[in-house]
Amino acid sequence: MSAHAAPEHGEYTGEIAKPNTAWIWKTFWILVIITAAEFAIAFSMTSPGLRTLRNTIFIVMTILKAFFIVGEFMHLKHEVKSLIWTILVPTALLVWLVVALVTEGSYVGEVLSHMFSS
């Protein structure tokens, strides 16, 4: 998708090109629709039994939104591969840290509740 890649910085000649904004509004609507869907799910899937499924959907949708914000608005999708990986690899390690410590948190809670309450 090089159609909306940043044009070369040309010499300023005084004439102003027409705006090319269709892709911006497309991304906007994608973000709005995902957010609206999140609210719909927040209020329709209220059963405690569906909590894990619901949270999984939320996290997938969040990553999807992040993809559009970083990829399109921050233009990362249109950068060279090495820059994309430079940003993504450390972030992926961060995701692992979150997963690891969430698991650790459940364990800490379990241990504390077994030790301090009978």
């Binding site: 209220t46 405690p48 450390p90 972030t91 961060l94 840290l97 979150v98 410590l101 969430v102 698991t103 650790e104 948190g105 459940s106 800490v108 809670g109 504390l112 509740s113």
Partner: peptide, 24 residues
């Protein structure tokens, strides 16, 4: 992102350390 990642990591750990409301 690391700074906010640290916040979210702490949040995840502390939240999972606490009990969950199991009712409706």
């Amino acid at each position: 992102a690391f700074t906010f990642g640290a916040f979210l990591t702490a949040y995840g750990l502390i939240r999972h350390k606490h009990g969950v409301f199991t009712g409706q």
